[in-house]
């Protein structure tokens, strides 16, 4: 496995992608940014990403559908849900559907890097539960 982590960021708020791309590139991620769920789904169908970061509440297609699409494509890919509409039921639904993590907006780039670090660790050693933080 190479050191670069292939990450897709999807949020219909363009600023999220704009800011996260450099923030994640810093820690060695190759980031592709989308603000349209349809375009992101098309890309996901083409390519197997290591990590997908997706917003949940979006027009047309919502994050849960993206999560399901990613799972259909590859169970290896870690999906991190980010949402402003964080609620217990939504969080549990996401986890049940196989999300790697669920983050409530607003979050800092460091918060996400921490989670992606854990995802990377989980990718390297799938048997071990992700506990320690890496970044």
């Amino acid at each position: 496995m190479s050191d670069t982590l292939e990450v897709l960021v999807l949020d219909d708020e363009p600023i999220v992608g704009k800011r996260l791309k450099p923030a994640l590139a810093k820690v060695g991620c190759a980031v592709e940014v989308f603000d349209s769920p349809a375009a992101a789904l098309a890309r996901i169908a083409e390519k197997e990403f290591d990590v997908v970061v997706t917003d949940i509440r979006m027009d047309e297609i919502d994050g849960m559908q993206v999560l399901e699409a990613v799972n259909r494509k590859s169970l290896r890919t870690k999906v991190i849900m980010i949402t402003g509409y964080a609620m217990m039921s939504l969080a549990r639904e996401a986890m049940e559907k196989g999300a790697f993590d669920f983050i409530a907006k607003p979050f800092t780039p460091e918060d996400l890097r921490e989670v992606i670090g854990r995802a990377a660790q989980a990718l390297r050693s799938p048997a071990e539960p992700p506990s320690a933080l890496a970044g």
């Binding site: 708020e13 600023i15 999220v16 800011r19 996260l20 450099p22 923030a23 810093k26 980010i82 949402t83 402003g84 509409y85 964080a86 409530a104 907006k105 607003p106 979050f107 800092t108 780039p109 460091e110």
Partner: peptide, 21 residues
């Protein structure tokens, strides 16, 4: 309250980006 989280998130991310880089 939930909708407010979106601009707040944009502000947080942007402010942190400014701080870092």
């Amino acid at each position: 309250a939930h909708e407010l989280n979106n601009p707040l998130n944009n502000i947080t991310l942007t402010a942190h980006a400014l701080l870092e880089d």
